[in-house]
Amino acid sequence: MTTLDNWRKSSYSGGGDGNNCVEIAARPTRISIRDSKDPSAGTLAFPPEVFAPFIETVKGQRHR
């Protein structure tokens, strides 16, 4: 049996249709990320222990 991921949008998606950001799905063994504008284009998946450092790196890049 396949369990569907429970995708949720970032709180920073903005107004309007809310499709200007990313969605994440958390499971015990991985955190997946996809583009909310094109969810069928693919996903990035990370083990939970590396997800927080990945996000911190992305946030650091945003301030440059």
Rank of each mutant, 00 (worst) to 15 (best):
K59Q: 08
V22Y: 02
F54A: 13
A52L: 13
E23N: 09
G14V: 12
I55G: 04
N20H: 06
G14C: 07
E56G: 14
W7P: 04
R8F: 07
I24D: 03
T3D: 15
F46A: 02
E56N: 13
I55W: 03
P53I: 11
P53T: 12
G42N: 05
A25H: 00
T57H: 09
G18P: 12
D5T: 06
L44F: 10
F54N: 03
H63V: 07
P47W: 02
T43Q: 12
E23G: 07
V50M: 14
Y12R: 15
A52D: 07
K37H: 01
D5E: 10
G42S: 04
V58R: 06
T57S: 10
R8W: 01
N19G: 06
T43E: 14
Y12I: 04
D38C: 09
Q61R: 14
R27K: 15
S32H: 10
F46H: 05
R8L: 01
R30C: 08
L4K: 08
P39R: 13
G16K: 01
S11R: 10
S32N: 05
Q61H: 15
D35I: 05
P39L: 14
P48D: 00
D5R: 08
G16A: 06
F54I: 03
E49Q: 14
I55Q: 01
L44N: 11
G18S: 08
I33Y: 09
I33T: 08
V22L: 06
S10D: 02
Y12V: 05
I24V: 15
I31P: 05
S32A: 15
I33A: 12
F54Q: 03
I33R: 08
R64S: 06
A52E: 10
D38P: 00
V22N: 01
F51P: 00
P28V: 15
R8E: 08
M1Q: 07
F51N: 01
G14F: 10
G14N: 07
I55N: 05
L4D: 12
P47S: 11
A25T: 03
P48S: 00
A25N: 08
D17V: 11
G16I: 03
V22R: 01
R30T: 10
I55P: 02
E23P: 01
